[in-house]
Design a protein around this nucleic acid. Structure first.
Lengths: 221, 221, 221, 221
DNA sequence: TATGAATGAGCGTTCATTCAT
DNA sequence: TATGAATGAACGCTCATTCAT
């Protein structure tokens, strides 16, 4: 702990204690807001709702965000960034055949969706719920997100490991399905959840032509 | 008048002319409401909007429906029934190999989604948008809907034409993807739309193990 | 009364009874709003205030006006039109030397200001209180209003009856002063009020070079 | 320290250094607030605005003033005192015929209004904008202000240089017009502004019977 | 049956004010 | 002294709902 303190002291970042505290508060708000928006959709969440869950008054939110829209944008950004970061991290630590890596990525994505942001994916799923401006942000995040999957699929196709009708179509179906997983698996836990995730993952692998039970390599015949 | 009465008596239902007129009016309202909800989603449609498109006043709607929620329920039923009926009809007119029939069903479903009810599928996709009560109705419709696909897949699996990791998983992914199609293909028209639908259909067939361009059997070579 | 009814029936204006009632209600609201805006200024009057004085709820106002701004615009227009109409009417009935007519016009203007719209002139006086859009309306009304005075002054100057440094400057000072008269004479009544108005009128006539006690003609020397 | 104490003792007021600092701060705040109120009017200025221009936080203002209203009162006093002081100063430096002095006074008043406190005069013009308490302060300032003009006019009338219907009426019209000058001349600059002020001044002189271009005496020819 | 009118709860937003630090 | 944070009342506005006619 002392070490940590020293580290912080050593870090000459120009953020004051006050600023850090403010940042922390902002993160709290953002997390709570993202939760709620994810659960009910943008329109259905009032600032009163957000404030109540944070145990402050509506007006206080305006100390940190100039409007509901801005809060929405920031919440989406925060959620999306965290998510993507986790996937990027995972991917960085993986090697082996491309279909194993894709399988890993899909599994992790579903895991996050189900375990950490049970409703967070709604945003990506139904961007129509959001005001024009936020949609741009959502779209951008989605693309960053998409790229991780797309690169793997491209690689697999190039290597002849994957077969697709179209990369876009496959990707879209994959995301649509993963985005729904939190709804489907809500309530499942432990072994049951594991198995459900595994089955879904296998099913989604079929979208790139990897048949179930085909073991590791699709082209072993 | 006597004549009218006779006519009514001949009619097997004991509905008066008045009642029939009322029913007709209700259907008009339902159709219009379903249209609007389909276009913009439940929350984004006000009773004023519905009334205006019907060229009546807001208050009049309350003569037929006790609340917006009830109107919503009924409208969803209308929409869902119509949708399912179209699919059932199509299916009744199809024969040939099971994968061709499934392909036809998927294609038609996407067609309806994209062309007729751009936002209609959101109801099935994100039932959280709807008040508790409606969700039951939605769920039931969904099941009827689902059954059409499930029976075909079961048949294909039994015949050895389809390979799946799990029927449920495959179905879910199929529906999740079809439900998004309206969003993905919004703006597309004519040839471009046809091709997009075809590609999506082919991709979804892979979920039951039918490879693209594999003709009839998935992997008989 | 019967006659009146007949007249109304004879009048084939396409306004239904319902429409007339609505119009009457709108006039009530407009009058009340104009009163309040005049008393306290645009910003200081809330829709709640207007509603309360009308003994309805805030929301009801929106049945008649789409926004506070629109209510403001309409209120200004109503007030201004009525005012101008009265002055035009008066002027139509006047003849005689130009300074007598100007004197009459000024007197009537002050009379209306003090007796009928004690605070209504604030709008013309402090248009900064109003949103951009309303100012345009106010400005236009002011000009119509202004024209009545300007024409008389021009005529007097042309006839050599009036002497001015500049017509604009004289007009402006005249209006600024008349606009304040309601504040100055608030509380005065009967003879006292008459005398106050007369004195102010005489003073204002000096702005066009008509000396007090100069009798009827300014150039009798 | 001792020195300091001696200095303070020498100073006739028993104000500590701390107190002087506080006073200075208060003056800063008052000046800034008066500026802002003068520019935009009382209602349109928020404490946030005042704080921002002072580069402090909103909360800090409450260390010096118990409420916005109190700040308003004091700011008006500051503004009014400064204004009156400038006029008194000018007057002290003037001699010559009374109409020249009046002309000078009017010109300076308009100059201040247009150039320094564009919205400042609204306070005097429309005291309804202000909370009850401030009105007393405003009224008093107004009287001090008024006296400067009244004394000159009285002198001129006594000397036979001025002719008025009534001193009060003339004064009122004069002030009403001068108060509007900021509105009328907003946007004018340089030569154009000079000329406008000159013309308005000449016009106002007519209120005391001084004809334009009549040189020194009104109608001695 | 259908309408025009009204209601009232709720929304996003602003801002004077308070207060622990 | 001064700050950052929070509060709560008020605002303009929307809309599902009610009701006399």
């Amino acid at each position: 702990m002392a070490t940590t303190r020293v580290d912080e002291a050593a870090d000459e970042a120009p953020v004051s204690r006050v600023q850090r505290k403010r940042d922390r508060r902002i993160q709290e708000i953002l997390t709570t807001a993202a939760e709620l928006f994810g659960e009910r959709g943008y329109d259905a969440v009032s600032l009163e709702d957000v404030a109540e869950r944070l145990d402050v008054t509506k007006g206080s939110l305006y100390y940190y965000f100039p409007s509901k829209d801005q809060l929405g944008i920031s919440a989406v950004e925060t959620l999306g960034n965290r998510w993507t970061a986790r996937l990027e991290e995972l991917l960085a630590g993986l090697d082996g055949p491309v279909h194993d890596r894709l399988r890993g990525l899909i599994g992790e994505h579903i895991s996050i969706a189900v375990r950490d942001y049970p409703a967070g994916l709604r945003m990506f799923l139904v961007p129509q719920d959001w005001p024009e401006q936020q949609r741009a942000v959502i779209k951008e995040l989605r693309q960053r997100h998409d790229r991780l999957f797309r690169e793997l699929i491209d690689e697999g196709v190039a290597a002849g490991d994957f077969t697709v009708t179209g990369v876009d179509a496959a990707l879209r179906c994959m995301h649509a399905s993963m985005s729904q997983s939190a709804v489907w698996f809500a309530g499942l836990e432990g072994q049951r959840l594991e198995r459900a995730i595994a089955e879904l993952t296998d099913t989604l692998m079929m979208l790139v032509g990897v048949m179930p039970g085909a073991g590791t390599a699709p082209d072993q015949a």
